[in-house]
Design a protein around this nucleic acid. Sequence first.
DNA 1: CTGAAAGCGCTAACAC
DNA 2: GTGTTAGCGCTTTCAG
Lengths: 332, 332
Amino acid sequence: MSANLRQVAERAGVSVRTVSNVVSGFALVAPETRERVQRVIDELGYRPNAAARHLRGGRSGLVALVLPEISSPYFGELAGHLADQAEAYAWTLLVQQTGGDAARERELLDGVRAQTVDGLIMSPWGLSPADLTRRPDSAPLVLLGEQDAGGLLDHVALDNETAAADLTHHLIKTGRRHIAAIGLQPHLVNGTAARRAAGYRRALAESGLPAREIPVDRLHRADGAAAMTHLLDNGAEVDAVFCFSDQLALGALHVALDRGLRVPGDLAVAGFDDIEDGRYANPALTTIAPDKPAIARAALTCLADRLADRNAHPRRVVVPHRLEVRASTGRR
Amino acid sequence: MSANLRQVAERAGVSVRTVSNVVSGFALVAPETRERVQRVIDELGYRPNAAARHLRGGRSGLVALVLPEISSPYFGELAGHLADQAEAYAWTLLVQQTGGDAARERELLDGVRAQTVDGLIMSPWGLSPADLTRRPDSAPLVLLGEQDAGGLLDHVALDNETAAADLTHHLIKTGRRHIAAIGLQPHLVNGTAARRAAGYRRALAESGLPAREIPVDRLHRADGAAAMTHLLDNGAEVDAVFCFSDQLALGALHVALDRGLRVPGDLAVAGFDDIEDGRYANPALTTIAPDKPAIARAALTCLADRLADRNAHPRRVVVPHRLEVRASTGRR
DNA sequence: CTGAAAGCGCTAACAC
DNA sequence: GTGTTAGCGCTTTCAG
């Protein structure tokens, strides 16, 4: 076991108070005392005990990231930004996967860990806004995505509807007339897909074009592939697909090319999220690029501000996005 | 603030000892007492304080995953398996990124967090085996990858050399004669790339074929793209590239197709890691598929066993892999 | 089966 | 500037 404060104090011939001062660097300590204490600290390899600090001070230095799955590229990239930026707050990120399951989300939100951490950043899929606000007194929660929770919780989102409309307009502008959407998730309360669908429909309506929507179970490549297969097997007249995530789009793209379609010649394919895979796909994937570092920054800022003032008015931060046009939606 | 043991005890008219017994479920408690206490617990929404438990019991229930970057698909998939399986041990995963930097690896290995957690699972890139064994008394460390640390640390690895040789043999068997390797990292002490290079060279030597090796700085798609560009710009005679990661391969593939090469017609492309992107690439990527769930399982088992017996002989677990042949290395 | 109390390592209020 | 000490919430030894 490593040394504790008292042992350092004894060996340096000072009180624990003084050692504590040296370690935390706050209060004034005579230079020579400080040096002597520091020497003993180095000698003994003393490290402050985080559990004791946590118990005493109430801060753990831990922030939980609660999301459907860390292996999804979008969340992986986001987690990377969060972990990097969390350092500026001396926070360490803790990852908890829900699989998008409501019961599991509930469990993580109310469980023991939720008290251990200084805050939670969560991307809810299964829980409704109402569910989210009903939780025991615990660490503050920042929501990622479209779950607004009636303005009762801090919340970082994109303007999903506008983004989807922008992308749909782009497809129309490049000459597409039969644009299918892949990615609705009618079984989820998660509003993200619904917002994107709304933008898609609005853009089509403005041009008098018909909508065609294919629901999916999850947002993996396999689901995009299945949806595309379904579309082609049913002989649908379609010259573009707008997928609500890049992963779906990559699955759809794979099937389309496999079936001998030329992309973008016969079919335009677009996604959403701007994951790195899309940039290197063949052809490269047109997508909506959310400012991911900004999402991370906003989430951490919300948490820090909330910790500083538990009664501040909940914020809704809308992070910018950008339409990223690449080869997959070139002219026919 | 939420209730504590004493408050529950007072309200239930019992001692803290009894409440503690009810909560932990270990010792015997009279059924009716238990029920009464449980009712108060529910009433007050009591949750045990993890910091106090940690301070008292010395276990935090936290395991640190220390890796170059969580946004890399390989590590993302691995982290997903680890997070899932950690639950069986009542462990929560904490993510720390090093960027592959030695100083940062050192810092995380010796820092405060390293004492907070029950154990560390690390994929070292910058630190040498010798560096890794030289650390203050701290939580046990399990190594991922080729860093053997002289048999002094628990260690989960692939048979990288055999895997690379298998893949190279496969390329030779399908008629390739000018097989370049992309992915050496001469600036890193990390032995993984070196082992893969050894397997590649061995296989080529056995067939009397020449080796051609392109070093890379990092293992991102952009590095694979740069290496491929370099190869093509120098007019190298090459009919296959073996990339030491799928990410490199996807970058190389992108450039090759962009330059008008047919894959696999003119050029075969193969990777390593079996990340999901590779399965849906166009053409789908031939690769070495490590058993990732098994890696996660082995790492957690090592940690648990080490915690049970700090003096057990360090283990080296070799996890199986499989050659996954897909379209990108079809016949010319 | 239950109660009293020590103590995990630290911080900070209170002394001097 | 430095020493002394209470107490954060819990588990567990020792009594009963």
